[in-house]
Design a protein around this nucleic acid. Structure first.
Lengths: 157, 157
DNA sequence: TCTTGAGTGGTCATCCTGTACAGATATACC
DNA sequence: GGTATATCTGTACAGGATGACCACTCAAGA
């Protein structure tokens, strides 16, 4: 069900050097090319690998300010609020969480001043009772997956 | 400084179908192959595209439970806490935010019971004063970048 | 006007991809 | 032990993509 050691090494390798092809990967891992190909297909079919989309840096797009907003939603308004937030480009992701109709969303903005505009747009919607925003100052651990992959591979060995 | 309409369309195309090559992309966009190649190089050099690493789904690795933890840090312990959290595989990302020595981190776990173990490990560290955890129930807007790319391309046109 | 940067369309040799197949190996089950 | 299933290996092939060039055109700015 999970992944084995070879899957783990393959994922690590792809994370470190995404541009290498199947052939080069097979050389690095010391297995046949067909094996790498089969593993990759399987990992994608099982959903472990969602895809290889480009990782875009919002800062480089002109949105260097990042923030998290906790939203309190009026009962029964969840669906409308979701639609509303989906329509805001600066909302990069949205989660519903435990708590009294709470949601957590990640925002970006062009500047601190611009963040105010974004927040106004986000909370300027009827179903949102309250919002509290935390501006991101540092990102000591950027989104990562390799340590978890290592752990998962170890557990399944 | 930013990106133009062609960059935007290229990013959209890559996000939608990451596996297509430079040649196919040039066909879809109706430009010469060399143009796509040059744009891609430029986007990567400018840092707009960080890379093409595999997007791994923690749930498919056996970690279906996701949560956000807000941590309050003892003054002056920031560095140690960062190191501590970096050593926990289940910590997928970590941000320092505005607030009284606050941090926000994203966790995953194998189950709700396992989440307790992860939280214990996360907060079982001297520099952490308090922690409040919100378990993710739904993810109405998964991490996305296309709407922001569209916005950025429109602003620079 | 001159210069510069960018896009175009073309060519080249090299390399990689997807696919297929037969044989070897391993594992679990009866 | 015998057997079925799955996986890995090595190999082969045709088609296509890649990176690197080049000369030419075009538009914008100095």
């Amino acid at each position: 069900m999970g992944i084995d050691a070879l899957d783990g090494r393959l994922l690590e390798l792809l994370a470190a050097e995404p541009r290498i092809g199947v052939l080069e990967a097979s050389r690095r891992l010391g297995v046949a090319r067909g094996t790498v190909q089969a593993r990759l297909d399987r990992l994608q079919n099982k959903g472990v690998i969602r895809g290889f989309g480009p990782e875009v840096d919002p800062a480089a797009l002109g949105y260097p300010v990042s923030a998290f907003a906790t939203l309190e939603i009026k009962q029964g308004q969840g669906k409308d609020v979701r639609e509303h937030l989906r329509s805001v480009p600066e909302v990069l992701e949205l989660h519903t969480t435990t708590g009294h109709g709470d949601m957590l969303c990640r925002l970006v903005a062009r500047s601190n001043a611009d963040l105010q505009r974004v927040i106004d747009r986000v909370v300027g919607f009827d179903g949102i009772v309250r919002a509290s925003t935390a501006i991101v100052m540092e990102n000591p651990v950027p989104l990562r997956i390799v340590p978890l992959v290592r752990q998962a591979a170890k557990d399944n060995s």
